[in-house]
Design a protein around this nucleic acid. Structure first.
Length: 571
RNA sequence: GCGUUCAUGGUGUAGGGGUUAGCACAAGAGGUUUCCAACCUCUUAGCCCGGGUUCAAAUCCCGGUGAGCGCACCA
């Protein structure tokens, strides 16, 4: 089969078999929105569940769930509103797109606060296109990639957005998480769910969607004691593409431990999550040879990230970012603390030994300062408390916060030397965030599993999905649609479906070979065939998808192996 | 958003100003068959949407929507 048409054949199969389809298709479809059909939705649920289990197994990570509708102030604090409300304009001559405020910043001191009308006026004053020197601009348009909505009716409504990431939900719950974990770092919270970005130009099937499935972990740590794991016990060699502007530019192959030791991965916890990301991707069936980790250059770093790695997977669309692992430092919690004025977005760091601190201060004498400065007394007291260097003698001139100066006379203050035992301090935890694009991962799972083969001269396709990922675990096939075989097949199907995590479907239409082919195409790993012998002794044949080898086994032992995930042991 | 190619049953395609719109595969019913897309009979099902030109549009023109590719964008 011609290799160059593989993408079309794969996409056609996904539509035909109800894996992934265009959404709202009977109304013409909407770009960037997709449906998961019966097969795809089952695969998605199982992959998502594996992701949840993967992180919950750490023991210090819990799952939460937050609203998708998010009030505006949250996203102002996170930076999503301010950073991405930029007005864009396009050169009519060459088609280049620019941030409108950047083009006119020499004409206005605060260009990024201008409305589009004002910007357009400035643009019309003869601003030249940086790439072609023409000066004809389209009307500037805001390019906020968030979907807007309102909470509440009419003018009483508050502006809100559909969340562009699930992460803010974890930050909102930080105080509850801190309590849940009995005030001890490190700990993490995960959330899976929908995220929304009103992409200008969705492309490439399920790679850039307007509504997509995300799965994010926020792991809160003490930056002075970052959690480490022994990565040198791991044996895999992975492809790394370090920061092109840094000392390790280029492409290297090494283990996670070696990369950390070499300073390529700069943070031990980030390195640990790179490794755990690798584990997950392997578990769901991504080809290890087509995974690489790429470090962001400082120029492409997200506005909140201090260091960032993309995990990219290679498929029909080239190398695609499927996971972002960012060290967001204290950016989010600190910003939410400032904007919301909430306490409780910090953690307590106990010193190994209490520190005895001796502080010399000028204690204000309220009964003198009050009557003397009256309305300014508060500011004077604040300025006194804020002094970092105490004057040697009185009187002295004290500068207030607003710049004015007052004279402090003896009697207004009392010089005190205070000793306090300090047993610890409050600090804002840092956050390491692995963020997974579930749809992109599913695409690559399907891409890597899809195999076009030949079978007796005929084209034949397999989905070599990992066990536990396929939409059902096995199909049950009555060899003939008569003689009681369908009844027995029904019983076997029901018995399997009664197991907690196993799924079976029965298929009795058309020839046995065709039914095997149908199951192979959507990746069902096992086929149980009920034949005449089954009617006599209750045994069935078990066919393994990956090599079409068959053995005979009794239903009871098959049930045990399906429940335990050890079907391979039958062979 | 710009440029470009394209849009025919579930899938892949042929055709094309007046046609019963053809084919293959898939699917459904029946027959046959002792385990890998076999065979026979029958059946279901299609010209993306909206305007225009024309006696007549699925076909030509314009617009929209969707898909692919290139440029731009992609926190």
């Amino acid at each position: 089969m011609a290799e160059e048409r593989r993408l079309e054949r794969l996409s056609a199969m996904l539509r035909r078999r109800g894996v992934v389809l265009p959404a709202f298709d009977i109304y013409g479809g909407v770009s960037g929105l997709i449906d998961y059909g019966p097969v795809g939705a089952a695969i998605r649920r199982r992959i998502t569940q594996k992701w949840v289990d993967h992180w919950l197994s750490h023991g210090d990570i819990v799952e939460i769930d937050s609203p998708t509708i998010t009030p505006e102030p949250v996203l102002v604090a996170s930076g999503h509103v301010g950073e991405f409300n930029d007005l864009m304009t396009e050169c009519k001559a060459c088609g280049s797109v620019f941030r409108a405020d950047h083009l006119v910043e020499h004409l206005h001191p605060n260009a990024d606060s201008l409305a589009s009308d004002a910007i357009d006026e400035l643009l019309g004053s003869g601003i030249e296109c940086p790439s072609c020197s023409d000066s004809a601009w389209t009307a500037s348009l805001p390019m906020n990639l968030m979907f807007t909505t309102r909470i509440g009716a009419m003018s009483a409504g508050r502006t809100a957005y559909m969340r562009p990431e699930t992460a803010q939900g974890m930050f909102m719950l930080y105080p509850a998480l801190y309590r849940h974990f009995r005030q001890k770092l490190p700990f993490g919270a995960i959330q899976t769910g929908k995220g929304y970005r009103n992409e200008i130009s969705p492309r490439q099937g399920m790679i850039r969607l307007r509504e997509f499935n995300m799965a994010e972990l926020e792991y809160f740590i003490d930056p002075e004691q970052p959690p480490t794991a022994d990565l040198n016990r791991r044996s895999e060699i992975v492809m790394l593409v370090p920061d092109p502007d840094g000392p390790h530019a280029g492409e290297v192959r090494m283990g996670f431990g070696a990369a950390l030791d070499a300073g390529i991965v700069r943070h031990p916890t980030v390195a640990w999550f790179l490794a755990r990301t690798w584990d997950f991707l392997i578990e769901v069936g991504i080809d290890p040879a087509r995974i690489r980790f790429r470090q962001h250059a400082s120029t492409e770093m997200a506005h909140y990230a201090a260091d960032c790695w993309d995990c990219e997977i290679h498929g029909e669309h080239g190398w695609i970012e499927c996971v972002g692992i960012a060290n967001r430092t204290c950016h989010d919690l600190e910003s939410h603390e400032t904007h919301s004025k909430a306490k409780g977005l910090r953690a307590w760091r106990q010193f190994a030994e209490p520190r005895s601190q001796t502080i010399e201060r000028l204690a204000p004498n309220g009964s003198v300062i009050g009557p003397t400065f009256r309305a300014d007394a508060g500011a004077v007291v604040a300025a006194l408390e804020g002094l970092t260097e105490l004057p040697d003698e009185l009187p002295f001139d004290l500068t207030l916060a607003d710049g004015r100066t007052v004279t402090i006379e003896p009697g207004m203050v009392e010089r005190r030397i205070e000793t306090a035992n300090v047993s610890g301090e409050w600090f804002t935890p840092h956050v390491i965030e692995p963020a997974f694009g579930i749809d992109r991962i599913i695409w690559h799972v399907l891409d890597h599993a899809y195999e076009e083969a030949q079978k007796e001269g005929e084209d034949y396709t397999f989905m070599r999905l990992a066990e536990g990922i396929s939409s059902v675990d096995c199909v049950v096939l009555p060899l003939f649609d008569k003689d009681g075989m369908p009844d027995l097949a029904c019983e076997v199907t029901a018995a399997i479906n009664a197991l907690p995590h196993a799924r079976a479907e029965m298929d009795s239409s058309k020839s046995i070979g065709r039914r095997y082919a149908r199951a192979d195409e959507i990746g069902v790993p096992w086929a149980l065939t009920v034949d005449h012998t089954s009617l006599e002794d209750g045994s069935v044949t078990v066919r393994r998808r990956d090599d079409q080898v068959q053995i005979r086994a009794f239903v009871d032992e098959i049930l045990q192996h399906l429940a335990a995930g050890t079907m391979q042991n039958l062979f």
